[in-house]
């Protein structure tokens, strides 16, 4: 049995498989990859890297998208 790892996604603690990629995480969270940006430990990932980048314990992931807004 594989060990689970603890990561932070958008500021919330989340558990995932130790061999999970960023693409796996997005799939598990049911987030469509188009029009989202993913930042892994402050590094913005190229979309093409989503299925290659493995997550590791303690990683901080930010998944960002567009919402309604004009000026703040």
């Amino acid at each position: 049995m594989q060990d689970a790892i603890q990561i932070h996604v958008n500021g919330q603690a989340q558990t995932c498989r130790c061999d999970a990629t960023v693409a796996d995480l997005l799939r598990d969270l049911e987030i469509r990859t188009e029009r989202v940006a993913v930042e892994l430990n402050l590094e913005i990932l190229d979309r093409a890297m989503f299925d290659q980048r493995l997550l590791k314990d303690g990683d901080r992931v930010e998944i960002m998208s567009f919402i309604g807004g004009g000026s703040f």
Binding site: G11, Q12, Q14, I63, M64, S65, G69
Partner: peptide
Amino acid sequence: TVAVRRVNITDR
């Protein structure tokens, strides 16, 4: 124009 914010991961 649109703003950039965290995706809501708890309520998909």
